[in-house]
């Protein structure tokens, strides 16, 4: 599999009043593999949408290079194999779902009515196809948005907050559709604040903070380093002292007659459990605490805000 998206030192600088220059995106180096679901995360104003707009050639990069399937983003042939679903999309309200699809199909020169109907069925809107968009719920509008983004059978989809503001049912429907895209071999580039969704469906992620990539990699690698928490009570002091001395990579603390041992998941808990079982202690719980994307995200953003440069 080759690269679907590659960016090299992609930078977008805006000049504000007083000739002040702001780097909204700075030296961005991304590589998205073909066929993967890639999560693009970052706090508000981090440069996510600006990056997507540069990749779609809606705005021009100040410097750097971006290619899609090896072609420059300003190559019109690229636009035949990609699609985009913007955040909170709006469609011409006077049109029906069917007319919207016909309109977008016409932009590709597609006149295949059967294809439009098949897509309406795929997003579960076939029965509502003759209703005007103004009567569509938010979830239905998002689904018609996904349908229009599939008209050209794209190899790469850009989805900006695809589940934002949806009710739980619509949310699950959209998430399942995105998973279907992967099964169909499509590459999906998602920008989202829904970290639980990203964690569930993405293969790799990048976290952008203040226009720069702060973390990038496979989710399993980025989320490695979970912890195990063992709680026991009535632990004899000798055992507690012994564990404190032995477990140099863990944290052993006592509170309200309870011993809490916090170990990295690379460390087997058997040693602690055996020591506790050999005494009068009662083991209350053994909880594996897997590192979540939310933890990684917060950690990354906080690292950046407490960095000396940020403080300055």
């Amino acid at each position: 599999m080759g690269a679907a998206i590659t960016t090299t030192n992609l930078t977008k600088t805006y000049t504000l009043r007083g000739n002040r220059r702001v780097n909204v995106v700075q030296d961005l180096n991304l590589e998205v593999e073909e066929g993967e679901i890639f999560g693009f995360l970052g706090p508000n104003g981090a440069g996510k949408t600006t990056t997507i707009k540069m990749l779609l050639n809606i705005i021009e990069a100040t410097s750097g290079v971006a290619t899609i399937f090896g072609h420059d983003v300003d190559d019109m042939t690229v636009h035949r194999i990609i699609s985009y679903l913007p955040e909170k999309p709006y469609y011409y309200e006077h049109m029906t779902g069917q007319e919207i699809l016909r309109f977008y199909a016409s932009l590709f020169g597609i006149k295949d009515e059967a294809k439009c109907n098949a897509l309406l069925e795929k997003v579960n809107l076939y029965n509502d196809r003759t209703k005007p968009i103004s009567q569509y719920s938010k979830g239905m509008q998002q689904r018609i948005g996904l349908a229009q983004s599939l008209l050209n059978d794209p190899k790469l989809l850009f989805l900006d907050e695809p589940t934002g503001g949806l009710d739980p049912i619509a949310h699950i429907e959209i998430r399942d559709l995105i998973l279907q895209f992967r099964d169909e071999g499509k590459t999906v580039f998602i920008s989202s604040h829904e970290l639980s969704d990203i964690e569930r469906i993405c293969d790799r992620v990048a976290i952008i903070v203040k226009g720069k990539i702060a973390r990038q990699g496979k989710l399993e690698d980025l989320l490695a380093g979970g912890r195990i928490e063992i709680t026991a009570e009535n632990v004899p002091d000798s055992i507690s002292q012994n564990l404190k001395a032995k477990l140099t990579d863990g944290i052993v603390s006592t509170s309200h007659n309870r011993l809490i041992v916090d170990l990295p998941d690379s460390h087997t808990p058997n040693e602690v459990l055996d020591a506790l079982r050999g005494s009068d202690a009662q083991i209350l719980s053994v909880i594996p605490r897997r590192k979540r994307l939310e933890d990684l995200f917060l950690e990354t953003v906080q690292e950046d805000t407490t960095a000396p440069e940020a403080k300055a």
């Binding site: 779609l56 679903l85 709006y90």
Partner: peptide, 14 residues
Amino acid sequence: ERRTIYTILSKPVR
């Protein structure tokens, strides 16, 4: 304002 331009310009439309 309504972002319709983004979906249109992301298609093969100059």
